[in-house]
Design a binder for these strands. Sequence first.
DNA 1: CTATACCCTTAAACTAGGTTAAGAAATCAG
DNA 2: CTGATTTCTTAACCTAGTTTAAGGGTATAG
Lengths: 201, 201
Amino acid sequence: MSNNANLTSCQPLLDYFGKLIPLKREEKELVEAKFHPLTFAKKQFALQQGKICDHFDFVVKGCLRLFKVDEKGDYHVFQFATENYWILDLTSFHKRIPSTLNIEALEDTLVLRITHRDLLDLYIKAPKFDRIFRVLLENHFMQQQERIGQLFSSTAEERYLSFLEQYPHLFNRIPNTQIASYLGITPEFLSKIRKNLQSKG
Amino acid sequence: MSNNANLTSCQPLLDYFGKLIPLKREEKELVEAKFHPLTFAKKQFALQQGKICDHFDFVVKGCLRLFKVDEKGDYHVFQFATENYWILDLTSFHKRIPSTLNIEALEDTLVLRITHRDLLDLYIKAPKFDRIFRVLLENHFMQQQERIGQLFSSTAEERYLSFLEQYPHLFNRIPNTQIASYLGITPEFLSKIRKNLQSKG
DNA sequence: CTATACCCTTAAACTAGGTTAAGAAATCAG
DNA sequence: CTGATTTCTTAACCTAGTTTAAGGGTATAG
């Protein structure tokens, strides 16, 4: 019965993997054995800075944010993760060092989680996952590079517009303070931008 | 004889891979078959925007820069690659779409290059390279994330100091205009920063 | 050896975005 | 339903970094 429950709960992840590379029965069973569901209430932390990030999370439902608190106490959002996104502090996860980042639920959230040890074991038992996680990482990398490009050469207004385009499902789901923090500006300035845009059309 | 020449020329790359995961004889031979040496004179382009990036380059000697030219005509350096670094436009390479970036030699440079087709073939013939390139990508990703964090919360002076720390071998090897372009500031402002630092000590 | 291109610096005027403060609106826990 | 917390907006003032312009320094190709 618990086996059956897992079968059900891992389905979104199996679908996700299956779209990248078709999985064999044994590989599906491995996924079911290694990933475990976990829920977070809104405002609950999935990772606190100072702790080692021992988990690689796939979001089934809800929304998490990965963010840094700098020396001045300001918050900076690296990434939001909604349905079918991955979230973790990769640096802490791989180097096994205390994290400088936090992960917090912006909504009640359900994730499928694999631990560091289990992921290594998964790579050994089914090398196909080396490839799957390579592809997954490539996608994350491309997104990050796009972001660096924008931080370099776009104004805050342009970045806001492109955020709205890229994450239309997010903008009425999370507060503007969070969006500002993702764009690298203050909420006050975002407010000014929004007013400007409104007067334009 | 040409075989022998390749054996010699691939040695830095074999060393690099060997440090990540030991390679078997067949795997070494595959590397020698798939990677080919290529030289660029200073100022020569290894990639021009608009073309598809069909190559993944390992720098044996010299220095390349990966940069973007924005709408205003300003240049922004994503990455420098010196000895033992990788350089390519990953987005163009994987999505097979025209690149928005350029790669240019800042010094006379020797790379070992693998094409897209040969890399896919390498993954198939030796799945160990799925793992190697996963690890390699993880490292790049971590560096990029660090960079985003800095662009968010550090002043230009702080970023300059941390550049000097992180790339001590680069700062007297490339012009300050390039460093400014990497830091996301104008050469004039970098000059001001350097003057300030000098008066401090 | 020389001319040309590139590189570095200075300084004055300017602008994108930050800071501070304060009130209004929305959301939420009890 | 109600008080409390969070969120959004406005506005006046401030600052890090840009722009423009100009002069001097330094490689480098021919």
